[in-house]
């Protein structure tokens, strides 16, 4: 059974089409990513699925249940972790979680068992007795995640779960997400970090201005839309002009990327040693040379004509 089916979903706010005929489905057990810049419509889509907003048109099914018609039943299957952490600062972690558990009508015993288990996985056991206002941003995110999965939802919706975390904490978080998938959850997550979509997600929908511009397995997307691989030559600063001229003479059309000069290549592994020897022959030994395979960033750039990161300031 499909965990999530979104069919022809449109949401209009005045002049803004936050979602414009979006269709996608998520298989059970999948980690599905929504990748897009600010304002792409990620939150709008997720909050419609979670039953917080009503669409202008279109339909959404969660494990076969229509979220508009059978919202209450559907809500039992969904765990929604919003973009903000949404916890009560003057209550302890434990008290926050107990409150959320009551919203799902959990039994006291079951709640205790589940908190133990999840606190263990997320490494927050010692934090449960502290007031949330005394916790760090990362600790709050963990607690917020527990609150979203306390009732063992089958579909977990995570809206930018790692925003604001340092790289180490982000990796820890990815591990938790993978572990939840192993335990049977289906995960829909949004992000504007392309590495997150790339490393974590089985499939990704790349969104821009309310539309899905590409959808598929990240490797396949990169292959199809990522363009050629690139070799980046970093010349010594004083030689930059001459290196650029030399590359043009060799028949390339170098473009600048920061301090580097980018050359597209079908066979980067073969090209790289050739480039280096030709440049040294002219006395223009580069500082270093890098090979860059296409990224989801390139996919976004090629499909929309705009860089993913720049839009996000």
């Amino acid at each position: 059974m499909k965990a999530l089916e979104v069919i022809d979903l449109t949401k209009v706010y005045g002049e803004v089409r936050a979602l414009d005929s979006v269709s996608l489905h998520v298989e059970e057990g999948e980690i599905f990513g929504l990748l897009g810049p600010n304002g792409a419509g990620k939150t709008t889509l997720m909050e419609i699925v979670a039953g917080l907003r009503t669409p202008t048109s279109g339909s959404v099914r969660v494990f076969g249940l229509d979220v508009l018609e059978e919202g209450r039943e559907a809500s039992k299957l969904i765990g929604f972790n919003p973009q903000e952490t949404m916890l009560y600062g003057d209550l302890t972690g434990w008290e926050n979680l107990r409150f959320v558990a009551s919203l799902y009508g959990m039994k006291e015993r079951e709640f205790r068992r589940r908190v133990e288990e999840l606190a263990d996985i997320l490494g927050v056991k010692d934090l449960l007795r502290k007031r949330v206002s005394k916790l760090s941003g990362g600790q709050r995110r963990r607690l917020s995640l527990i609150a979203s999965i306390i009732h063992s939802p089958r579909l977990l919706i995570l809206d930018e779960p790692t925003v604001g975390l340092d790289p180490d904490a982000r990796r820890d978080f990815w591990e938790v997400i993978l572990r939840l998938r192993e335990e049977g959850s289906t995960i829909l997550l949004s992000t504007h970090y392309m590495e997150e979509a790339d490393e974590l997600c089985d499939r990704v929908a790349i969104m821009d201005r309310g539309r899905i511009v590409a959808l598929g397995d990240p490797e396949e997307l990169k292959r199809r839309y990522g363009g050629m691989a690139k070799v980046v030559v970093y010349p010594k600063m004083k030689l930059a002009r001459r290196v650029e001229e030399a590359l043009s003479e060799m028949g390339f059309r170098p473009s600048r990327l920061g301090d580097g000069l980018v050359v597209e290549a079908e066979d980067p592994a073969g090209l790289t040693p050739k480039l280096i020897s030709e440049l040294s022959a002219r006395g223009l030994d580069p500082e270093r040379v890098e090979i860059r395979s296409p990224t989801l960033e390139d996919v976004f750039l090629n499909l929309t004509g705009r860089p993913l990161m720049e839009v996000m300031e």
Binding site: G51, S75, P82, M86, V100, L103
Partner: peptide
């Protein structure tokens, strides 16, 4: 203000 109303409304309560 806390956004906690979202937790309430996404629950079956």
């Amino acid at each position: 203000l806390l956004g906690t109303v979202k937790r309430m409304l996404t629950s079956p309560a």
